[in-house]
């Protein structure tokens, strides 16, 4: 029974979650694009000599605002720091998951570790804990809604289970229970649509932890388009509106 549930979570549900996420983002994008466009500028003006003098207007400025968050750096450097750690960490984690594939070799193919030897996951965990705990205090608490906490909790579950896979499975006497190569085989079976039971590659008692990690990641993908996480797609266009 449990075997079947874990198989569903780790194989068919992964595909469902991806398709759901892509369709959801497409739906949201269509919803935005089909809405009428305001025929006027929404820009605010940075300190320049005249409104026609736009030294840092347009897309370049919007990209800078989106990825560097300069105003946050200026007015709330602590939040800026943890947000940057979180976002950069997530990007590195996505790359390091791709690195699990035998075809990608950012870290030596023979190494049992992922990129960063587990430190990236730990950094993201700390950032998430900060983001979660600040929601229990002061004005941020007053403006938060239940989904804000649940989303952070879901992310925390995903990352902490990832930490356990990355670190915990090396705690046995014989060294790694599951190596980068084992996980790579599972990932490869997914991208080749072989529908092989992951148990074939992933042995030992850590299997449910991986299952839980994949379940959380699936849920994350599924809620992304229908929650505020969709800012992943819209942060840049919104900043472009501000920059004109």
């Amino acid at each position: 029974m449990f075997g079947r549930i874990w198989y569903f979570v780790m194989v068919p549900m992964v595909y469902l979650a991806f398709v759901w996420c892509v369709l959801g983002i497409a739906f949201k994008t269509m919803q935005v694009l089909r809405a009428p466009r305001l025929p006027r500028t929404l820009r605010i003006f940075p300190e320049s000599k005249s409104p026609d003098d736009r030294p840092i207007g347009g897309w370049a400025a919007a990209v800078w605002d989106t990825f560097a968050m300069p105003t946050l750096w200026r007015f709330n450097p602590t939040l800026w720091f943890f947000l940057v750690v979180f976002h950069i960490g997530i990007v590195i984690l996505i790359i390091s998951h791709l690195d699990l594939l035998p075809q990608v070799n950012i870290v030596s193919a023979s190494s049992p570790h992922m990129i960063g030897n587990g430190t990236v996951g730990a950094a993201v965990t700390v950032a998430l804990l900060y983001l979660l705990f600040r929601r229990f205090r002061g004005t941020v608490r007053e403006v938060s809604v239940l989904s804000d906490y649940l989303l952070l909790f879901l992310l925390l579950c995903t990352v902490v289970s990832g930490d356990i896979i990355s670190w915990g499975n090396s705690w046995s006497d014989e060294g790694f229970v599951m190596t980068k190569q084992d996980l790579g085989k599972y990932l490869e079976s997914l991208i080749t649509f072989s529908f092989t039971d992951p148990r074939k590659f992933l042995s030992g008692s850590h299997y449910p932890v991986i299952g839980f990690h994949v379940l959380c990641a699936n849920l994350f993908l599924m809620v992304l388009p229908f929650s505020k996480l969709v800012h992943t797609c819209f942060a840049l266009p919104m900043n472009k509106l501000r920059r004109g």
Binding site: A35, L72, K228, M238
Partner: peptide, 26 residues
């Protein structure tokens, strides 16, 4: 009133609170 921009503004706020200190009234 749900223009393109308004939809984005309503869907995407992270309730991060970075705007809290900005308002003179607050």
């Amino acid at each position: 009133q749900l223009s393109r921009s308004v939809r984005m503004y309503l869907d995407n706020c992270a309730r991060c609170g970075a705007c809290v200190e900005a308002c003179h009234a607050y």
